[in-house]
Design a protein around this nucleic acid. Structure first.
Lengths: 190, 190
DNA sequence: AAGAGTGTACCGTCCAGACGGTCAAGTCAA
DNA sequence: TTGACTTGACCGTCTGGACGGTACACTCTT
């Protein structure tokens, strides 16, 4: 009965597995049908084990949302923007981040949907996050352009969330390149 | 054939009321908890009455999605684009449409979320719709720019869907004006 | 070193309530 | 009378989560 080397999993591994399982299940059966039993089975723990780590369904979803948001915020460097007010930079970083983070891969953010479907209040942190981003963007040299970049990223994220993105990777690349150029040279304003 | 003074509701009014009630409930309690009982109560019909018009929950949601999509497609004039290939026009019309249609008002599209939460397959028509839009955009003079406009609209729609739009109406107006200008004068390309 | 005690991680059964959907029985305008 | 429309009681299933275990790794005594 020697389970590999360490008798226990590395610390926190089970939690992680459960969260991953939850997003996978949500993606498979639709967030509305996300059941703890299914998650537990997929994660390879019992229901009791799951509930040990996440005492309620809401707490599980909340954890997923928070982790996700953290990833995105880090990638975009929001905090650094708040320090030095580099609005254009945020827009650029968000674009880069989009191309890199797992958020971009289909089904990579189904936890969000589960959250939204389950308890709309869980979206509060997202609202907060967006407010922070917006505040940064307003400080950009040309706020409208920076906001456009932001919205493009959001649009893509959203389409991917719905598995309904009709654009190819190459197209997305060209779009970002175009935005890059526009952001790079504020240029020919009125 | 004056349908409106029939002692009963005008034809189809109940269906309409049910669909509206469904989106309202979805918005209130979260799409995952959209129950037929709640919808029926809100619509002022009995459960049986509801099931008469929509034999299954899925059919109700499907109807909502379809109606919604129709509205959007009409407003953007997709079909006309497919006829004359006016990609830039679609992008412009989508922007205008966004400002006008009820889709833009918060909670106005919660049916979508319910759909996605309930049965991901119901999103198929959306995928299809987006493919058509993309095809139009590719025929634009400057596809990248048109796609940017498209993505901006999608981004806004998405943010509104999540009640997480940090931008003011004035800002959105300026953003659209900027896009308008860029779309209007394909101009200074490399 | 043996035993008692404590904390962490996890298991699996059980149950009340919610939900989707059925159906037999109306209602009422045409 | 017919048939579109509506009712509300009812049923079977699913689900969240409470709960009472188990197993193991630790101290801390004695």
């Amino acid at each position: 009965m020697d389970l590999e080397q360490s008798p226990k999993q590395p610390r926190g591994a089970t939690r992680e597995r459960i969260m991953e399982a939850a997003t996978a299940v949500a993606h498979a059966v639709g967030p509305a049908h996300l059941s703890l039993d299914a998650v537990a089975e997929r994660a390879g723990v019992s229901k009791g084990g799951l509930l040990y780590h996440f005492p309620t369904k809401a707490s599980l979803i909340k954890a997923i949302v928070e982790r996700h948001l953290e990833t995105v915020a880090n990638a975009a460097g929001i905090t650094s923007c708040e320090a030095d007010g580099d609005g254009d930079g945020v827009a650029l970083r968000m674009m880069r981040a989009f191309l890199v983070t797992p958020v971009a891969k289909p089904g990579g953010a189904q936890g969000f949907l589960a959250a939204m479907a389950e308890t709309p209040e869980l979206l509060e942190p997202i609202r907060h996050h967006n407010e922070r981003v917006a505040a940064c963007l307003r400080r950009a040299q040309e706020p409208e352009i920076a906001m456009i970049a932001f919205l493009v990223v959001e649009g893509l994220r959203c389409l991917q969330l719905f598995d309904a993105n009709p654009l190819t990777e190459a197209e997305i690349g060209r779009i970002f390149a175009t935005l890059d150029r526009i952001l790079g040279c504020p240029a020919e304003t009125a």
